[in-house]
């Protein structure tokens, strides 16, 4: 029953990383789409919309990601709405990611000089067109480095799904640990795999920051 931690076991962990990557991609894509809507709503020319969205983002940013997960998985299931671990994980990471990305992108959109808005107004462009044709193309440049940087947080954040029994890299590590009882080797390998995914992203973010010569918009951890 007990066995050594060898190449077979390392391979098992490497394969488990695909769930981490898939979960991260889903969270990033859905969170990004929702985040874009939130970011635009945050600067929309309607005050009540701005207020509600801003409040929503602040509340989500004050909520532990683990609580979102537990609430959606255990809580909502008890309510009678059926959500499986996959859906609960994707949904909570989407909600969390969208709130943080919305704030990062709002900062970038607002960093586009006011004169651009005024010039667009002088050309009789409406809010939608100004945003789409003038502001967003400039904001994307600034947004790229912190967005790539935030992907690191998304990848690491998916480890929380292990706590609701979802089998990704962190949970696979825990499983492997019960049959080998070599915590240093197992969790060391798990760390290295995470590092191998995250470090290139961090480097890319830094490279982009230098190349695009944008200021220090710092990205926060989860």
């Amino acid at each position: 029953m007990l066995r050594e931690f060898g190449s077979n076991e390392i391979w098992f962990l490497v394969m488990a990383a695909r769930w981490t990557i898939l979960l991260s991609l889903l969270a990033f894509v859905f969170g990004g789409l929702a985040g874009l809507v939130l970011a635009i709503a945050r600067i929309a020319p309607w005050k009540p919309v701005r207020f509600v969205v801003s409040l929503w983002i602040q509340v989500i940013q004050a909520t532990p990601m683990l609580m979102l997960l537990l609430l959606l998985y255990f809580g909502v299931n008890m309510l009678g709405v059926r959500i499986d671990a996959w859906t609960a994980a994707v949904l909570s990471f989407t909600i969390g990611t969208s709130a943080y990305l919305a704030e990062i992108w709002r900062g970038c959109i607002q960093a586009v000089p006011k004169g651009q808005w005024e010039a667009a107004k002088a050309l009789a462009l409406d809010f939608k067109r100004t945003l789409a044709l003038i502001v967003i193309p400039q904001a994307v440049r600034m947004a790229l480095p912190p967005t790539v940087g935030y992907m690191v947080q998304v990848v690491k954040g998916t480890s929380l799904a292990a706590l609701i029994g979802f089998t990704e890299l962190a949970k696979a590590g825990a499983q492997m640990n019960t049959v080998t009882f070599q915590p240093v080797a197992v969790f060391g390998t798990v760390s290295i795999i995470y590092f191998a995914i995250c470090f290139p992203l961090s480097m890319l973010a830094r490279h982009l920051e230098k190349k695009l010569q944008v200021g220090t918009l710092r990205v926060q951890a989860l």
């Binding site: 859905f30 789409l33 929702a34 874009l36 809507v37 709405v81 059926r82 959500i83 499986d84 859906t87 994707v90 949904l91 989407t94 939608k128 067109r129 945003l131 789409a132 044709l133 967003i136």
Partner: peptide
């Protein structure tokens, strides 16, 4: 590409579908 809120909403549909499709196999 022309920006349209309708297009954005369409792009978001899969996410909503995922939430609604929680009842699984």
């Amino acid at each position: 590409m022309r920006f349209s809120f309708r297009r954005l909403a369409l792009a978001l549909l899969p996410a909503i579908g995922l939430a609604a499709g929680a009842v699984s196999a």
